[in-house]
């Protein structure tokens, strides 16, 4: 038995002169939901397709459930489930027939009824695939990916192109997979999606992993706290050392600090001492979204 569901070391993939994946190391624990997050063209799909056996790597070592996916073994395919970016099912079969067809390929498939329930397709079971909406098709994709009762499920951008409510319900469905004890390897370019679904996140930009950790650890990546408040224009001015740290827009002043407790104390002491009222005061940590965008920005400018 292997320790990790996915174990990648120094993985590289080049297409001609283009380096799509530039030497990445990743480990995914059994039973966790892992998200590979990054902008379009970062190399996420290339990476996940190497793990699925659809592409051959140029360099490095890859182990998925103890198998080398490039061998394309049937026993390996029995143990994984794949949900590609593009739907690939026969348009003239209905939902139930499609799931049944794929169920037959696996040695230990899940009961069709259970799959229909998990993916919320029960009411659509006798509808032809060609008549399904985009969101419903995606559910069917997941159903087909799940029907073989895989130990590891790959989801490549499961909610791209969804409206917000469809995204919410897809998220709920994916969260439910966790209760089934499955390892999930997810790619996405939505920070929010990674934050909502994943136990651990790796951020990939330009073929490299630029940050990795739990959503919480990533949030701590950036230490600056922002304190915002408003002053009336008639009020006095802040002490010079605070002004130098502040940026203002209109009446609103923002101060960024690595030592929020001290800074907040200085501001409030000044306020009480001078009688200037601080209005709408907020203390905020940067959102994961901000950190993500900052990391992407930094890595992209570094390369070019």
């Amino acid at each position: 038995m292997t320790e990790f569901a996915v174990d990648i070391a120094n993985l590289k993939k080049t297409y001609g002169n283009i380096e799509a994946v530039r030497g990445i190391d990743l480990r995914v624990n059994v039973g966790e939901v892992f998200a590979l997050l990054g902008p379009n063209g970062a190399g996420k799909t290339t990476t996940v397709e190497i793990l699925e056996g659809h592409r051959k790597r140029t360099e490095g070592s890859v182990s998925v459930l103890g198998h080398d996916p490039s061998n394309n073994e049937r026993i390996f395919k029995q143990r994984i489930g794949i949900v590609l970016q593009k739907t690939g099912v026969e348009p003239y079969l209905n939902v139930e027939e499609t799931i049944k067809l794929f169920a037959g390929y696996y040695r230990h498939p899940q009961p069709i009824q259970q799959i229909l329930e998990i993916t919320g397709l029960e009411k659509l079971r006798s509808i032809r695939v060609q008549k399904l909406s985009g969101g419903q098709l995606r559910r069917l994709d997941v159903a087909v990916g799940l029907v073989g009762n895989p130990e590891l499920l790959f989801l490549d951008e499961p909610t791209t192109g969804f409206d917000p409510s469809a995204r919410r319900s897809a998220w709920e469905m994916i969260s439910n997979l966790r209760t089934l004890g499955k390892t999930v390897f997810l790619t996405t370019h939505y920070m929010e999606e990674a934050e909502y679904l994943a136990d651990r996140v790796a951020i990939m930009v330009n073929g490299k992993i630029v940050a990795e950790g739990t959503p919480k650890e990533l949030a701590n990546h950036e230490s600056e706290t922002t304190i915002r408040f408003q002053l009336n224009s008639t009020d006095g001015t802040l002490p010079q050392h605070l002004v130098s740290k502040s940026t203002s827009s209109g009446d609103s002043i923002a101060i960024k600090t690595d030592t929020p407790t001290e800074t907040l104390f200085e501001i409030t002491r000044w306020s009480i001492d001078t009688g200037n009222q601080l209005k709408e005061i907020t203390v905020s940590r940067p959102s994961l979204e901000e950190i993500y965008l900052k990391l992407v920005d930094k890595s992209e400018t570094k390369v070019d």
Binding site: K86, G88, V89, E90, Y106
Partner: peptide
Amino acid sequence: FSRDQGLLKRIRGSPLP
């Protein structure tokens, strides 16, 4: 048609020979 739809790719990702 099946190739463009991704059906062939999906088949190859399944245990069906």
